[in-house]
């Protein structure tokens, strides 16, 4: 356990830029853009005397409906910042996996890591954990912090126009949003396994250019399936192959990777559309999908292959 902890820490040291600074910078840009937009609108409003007409003073017609809408707006705002940051994280995770078992072979530093008493399965496990738990958790937390900052800015601005901060915030659901997003990470991890496994297998196997191999093999296979189908081979469906195999193997690190497996008859418990989409019970109905488990098992098998290659790949 101690070894795994330090291995994970090692991954964080090495990828501090992607795991930590990338979400912070994305969040910072998000906040900056919001502030700039609001400032521009305020200045525009001031110049054109919009605010004096009373149209933009909400205090006259504040009713529960308006604060509800405002709360909803804040929820959406928070959610969008989390989505943006988690989306950036997906790109980071993709390239992290591709390099995870390749970069140290390329710069020969593997010779240093292998001089230490660390089992290969622990090395691979620490890298997988970094990709599917640590990086998403950091992104979710930083995304939530950005979201809350956004909401506070929006609420402050609204209060200048007569909407009370407390009313708006009372109708927003930051805690529920954050718990739902954090609660979805294990499901994300499970559904990301096929891509993680494939990328790390390529990373452990390729002598050079793991990126090209990772793309060319599934795409060429898809093309071959399509071509054989054209020739009249029965039982082949390139479109099915692409969405169920190729896309699972290449793009399952994107947020919401579990949605294809969600049982459509499950609707969220209550609340608006956004919370229905984030509803844990609804999303975790994906666990009933056999295809999801098959994908996860394939991912684990590919990770086992990567571990074996890590041990026996002889580069000289």
């Amino acid at each position: 356990m101690k070894t795994l902890y330090w291995l994970a820490k090692r991954e964080f040291w090495e990828h501090r830029g992607g795991f930590f600074w990338a979400p912070i910078i994305t969040g910072g840009i998000f906040l900056l853009m919001t502030v700039l937009t609001i400032t521009a609108l305020e200045v525009f409003g001031l110049h054109n005397n919009v605010f004096h007409t009373g149209d933009w003073d909400f205090s006259n017609h504040v009713d529960t409906g308006a604060t509800k809408d405002f709360g909803k707006f804040l929820d959406y705002m928070m959610c969008s910042s989390v989505v943006a940051i988690v989306g950036i994280m997906a790109i980071v995770i993709f390239f992290y996996c591709l390099g995870s078992l390749y970069d140290d072979r390329k710069d020969k530093s593997i010779l240093f890591w292998q001089s230490l008493p660390i089992a290969n399965w622990k090395t691979v496990t620490s890298k997988v954990a970094s990709a599917i738990f640590i990086a998403p958790a950091i992104a979710a937390v930083l995304g939530a912090i950005t979201g809350i900052a956004l909401v506070l800015i929006a609420a402050c601005v609204a209060s200048f126009h007569g909407l009370s901060i407390s009313a708006g915030l009372a109708d927003a659901h930051p805690v529920r949003l954050v718990t739902n997003i954090i609660g979805l990470i294990p499901l994300y991890a499970l559904c990301a396994l096929p891509t993680i496994g494939w990328l790390m297998l390529c990373s452990a196997w390729a002598r050079s250019k793991p990126f090209l191999w990772a793309f060319i093999i599934p795409l060429a296979t898809t093309f071959a399936v399509w071509w054989l189908h054209l020739l009249g081979m029965p039982g082949l469906d390139a479109q099915w192959f692409f969405s169920h195999i190729t896309a699972r193997v290449l793009f399952a690190v994107t947020p919401g990777n579990w949605t294809p497996f969600v049982d459509p008859i499950h609707t969220g418990s209550q609340g608006d559309e956004m919370f229905q989409h984030l509803d844990l019970l609804r999303n975790y109905s994906a666990l009933a999908s056999g295809e999801m488990w098959l994908g996860a098992a394939t991912g684990v098998a590919m990770l086992a292959g990567a571990t074996w290659l890590r041990r026996w790949r002889d580069d000289s």
Binding site: K2, T3, W6, R10, W13, E14, D107, L111, L116, P117
Partner: peptide
């Protein structure tokens, strides 16, 4: 094995911390 195979991103203090806790 071979010269200068330490990972280029690591700091002296990190290298010591890591080996101290692993070995």
């Amino acid at each position: 094995a071979d010269v200068a195979v330490l990972p280029r991103w690591i700091r002296v203090s990190e290298a010591i911390d890591f080996v101290a806790n692993i070995h």
